[in-house]
């Protein structure tokens, strides 16, 4: 069943036709050719498809595109500012926070969203005192980034990259 929708992707309005079954991830990849969001598991189990969806980090593989008509999506590609890499992307480069690169755009988007969540005072499972403001130590970074699996084992460098940006 086909539906016309519009998505604001990486700063640009895109009109497209999707099947009601089409996920936001497949709308980006198969319909719009926006490949920055990756498909690693297609079931919300790896985080590779993470984008900023209306400003918050979100997996796109279980979101039906038809339910997000009019949404604003920023991928890791769209984080680039006038050809300059986003500070989080630059930190990933500097700290070698990736190897094969497939989980990386999702990690980058997730890190950007996560830093905003911390700024907004959102706690995590490892936050000791829910009543206090959050201090972003390594344990917090690790917990908050655990929704993005990396099979190459770049976690240590990912944490280092985010630690640097957060400083």
């Amino acid at each position: 069943m086909d539906v016309r929708i519009q998505l604001h992707v990486d700063g640009e309005w895109r009109a497209l036709t999707v099947d009601t079954r089409t996920t936001l991830l497949d709308a980006l990849r198969d319909r719009l050719g926006v490949m920055s969001a990756k498909k690693g598991c297609d079931h919300g189990q790896c985080g590779a498809c993470t984008v900023l969806l209306d400003g918050r980090r979100a997996t796109t593989c279980l979101a039906l595109a038809v339910a997000y008509d009019g949404a604003e999506i920023t991928t890791a590609q769209g984080l680039t500012n006038g050809g300059m890499p986003h500070p989080v992307s630059q930190a990933f480069l500097d700290h070698d926070g990736f190897q094969c690169g497939y989980c990386t755009p999702g990690q980058v988007c997730s890190a950007v969203g996560m830093l905003d969540e911390v700024k907004a005072g959102q706690p995590s499972y490892v936050t000791r005192d829910l009543a206090r403001s959050v201090e972003l130590n390594d344990e917090e970074i690790r917990e908050r980034m655990s929704g993005n699996l990396c099979r190459c084992g770049a976690y240590v460098n990912i944490v280092a990259a985010i630690r640097e940006v957060a400083r």
């Binding site: 919300g44 985080g47 993470t50 969806l53 918050r56 980090r57 979100a58 997996t59 279980l62 979101a63 997730s110 969203g113 996560m114 969540e117 706690p123 995590s124 499972y125 936050t127 829910l130 009543a131 908050r144 655990s146 929704g147 993005n148």
Partner: peptide
Amino acid sequence: LRSRYPAVSRALLAGASAQLRNL
């Protein structure tokens, strides 16, 4: 929730991942 029912906050934070909890 955080102040009066912290078990609820913690239970939510124990579930899934941040990008799923946002949805």
